[in-house]
Simulated scan of single mutants.
Amino acid sequence: MTRVLLRASAAVLLLLSSALIGWRVLGPAERLDTSPEPYPVLVVSAPGVLGRISVAPLIFNDRLRIYAAKHQLRADEPVYGRAVYTSRWSLRRWPEQLSGVVTTGTTVVSRWSDGQLVAQDGRTGKILWRASGPDAPDYAGHRTGAAAVWSPPGLRIAGGSVVVAEGHDLLGYDLGTGAQRWRIETPADCADGFTTAGGVVVCPVGAYDASSGQPVATWPAGPSTPLGCPVADSGCAGFRDAAGHGWLTASATPQRATALDRPEATVAAGVVVAAAGGAVTGYAPDGTVRWTWPGEARVLGGSSTQVLLFRPDHHLVVLDAATGDRRADVRLAFGKEDDLWEIGAYQISEHYLAIERRRLGGPDDPDSPIYYYTTDTVLLAGY
């Protein structure tokens, strides 16, 4: 009888221990690790390829790199590092999934599958505020996390607001406090909308002031095509309306720009730029030619003063936005890599470029083992 009781007691203890371990491993949990280290100084690298990594970095103020994983947001340094390094700060939430990330100034705002918005000081990782919102899409960053950091679904920023879209609902939260400023219902789904440099949220069938949620009555008819967006379809410098007419958006009232009527034109470094006919041309908004650079190239975008081009031979060409003069010419390859890749997603910051490379002729499925060019498929370059 004693042996039976001992065995039964041991079984109960084992069961309780297993349950405790399972709860600690699988139960809801959050872990925040912040950094006491001084904020890195700005370092501008000489033009060239700096490294290759396996995950897409959200380049933060040209000082840190922020990465998305299914249940974690983290940052490392230096921004010009050739590999991924130990985290400077990190936030892990289980079992919630990271849906997307946006940044402005020194603030990082993440959206999670349970609808929580978490704002952090991007320099230290310290949490500034939290807010509850509608449930968000699950993590869709695939292997590199690019979708979460470069094109987060239903998460934008403009006019001092964090803008969240969930179906026909559009909500604006104060960037400084997390307080909900406004909530409206839109005629159509706005999850793929964009925001402008002038502080307007543009949806397929309407435009709204980002600070108040009020409709902008005189906005050109959509759906519109965003142009010159730095990252996350936020702060876009221009757009083409449903009729194909181009507009600049430095202010809340869009300004007509006939040069943007060209289907190949975009806005880079404040200049309308178009690649066609074996040349790249910079235009004034009225269509007056400012400069011409001879050669085949794709316009990637621009920093505040430079236009970035991608040549067919996989060279990055950097032009002065005011004159069209060439400032740099860099072959986008790490070491002796070949050119059997095509451009996927990418981010341009003031001094750095991060570019996700897809295997040339590969499948369309990001989960395929041969979708990306290499394991370390994200190339980092300075200019």
Rank of each mutant, 00 (worst) to 15 (best):
R31W: 13
A69F: 01
V79L: 10
T34K: 14
D189R: 15
D121W: 10
S54N: 01
F334M: 08
V43P: 15
T177Y: 13
T144Q: 00
P36K: 09
T106N: 06
V299C: 13
G48F: 15
V299K: 10
A83K: 12
L32V: 11
Y383F: 13
G172S: 12
E264C: 10
A158P: 12
A221I: 03
P95Q: 09
R357Q: 02
Y371L: 00
G81I: 04
S211K: 15
F334W: 09
A140C: 05
G48L: 06
E30N: 14
A257H: 08
S45D: 06
D233G: 06
T218S: 07
G145N: 00
S161N: 05
Q214A: 09
V330D: 05
L380H: 08
P294T: 11
A250N: 13
T34W: 11
L16M: 13
V216H: 10
G362R: 02
D114W: 07
L227H: 12
S224M: 00
A179F: 05
T196K: 12
R143E: 01
T288D: 04
C190H: 06
L316Q: 13
G159Q: 15
P254V: 01
G122N: 03
G115N: 05
V318N: 10
L340G: 03
P223H: 02
W94M: 13
V280W: 09
S87D: 07
D365K: 00
S251Q: 05
E96S: 12
A140E: 00
R88W: 06
R7I: 04
G160P: 10
E37R: 15
L26D: 04
L340D: 06
A56F: 01
Q116V: 12
A207G: 09
G100H: 04
V201M: 13
S110W: 07
E337S: 08
G335R: 12
V79Q: 13
W182L: 02
R3C: 15
P366T: 00
S132A: 12
R183Q: 15
G278S: 04
F60G: 08
G167C: 03
D121A: 15
G178F: 02
L360F: 01
D62P: 11
P57N: 08
D192E: 08
P78C: 13
R156L: 14
P220Q: 07
D338E: 03
A284H: 11
Y283L: 08
R326P: 03
A10I: 07
T292L: 11
R331W: 14
L15N: 04
G244H: 15
A354M: 05
S349Q: 05
G246D: 01
F334K: 01
D261C: 02
L171I: 09
P366D: 00
A345T: 05
R290H: 09
P363G: 00
T34Y: 14
K336S: 12
R331G: 11
Y383N: 09
P78T: 14
D169Y: 08
A75C: 04
T196D: 08
G154K: 02
R3T: 03
L20P: 10
G81T: 09
G115C: 07
P28F: 14
A56Y: 01
L6E: 02
G141Y: 01
R357L: 00
G335M: 07
V101Q: 05
D62S: 09
G198K: 04
E337N: 07
Y383M: 08
G115D: 06
A56I: 00
L32G: 06
D189A: 08
D192M: 09
D76Q: 06
N61Y: 14
L58G: 05
T375N: 00
R88A: 11
S90L: 12
A217L: 11
E185S: 04
E342R: 01
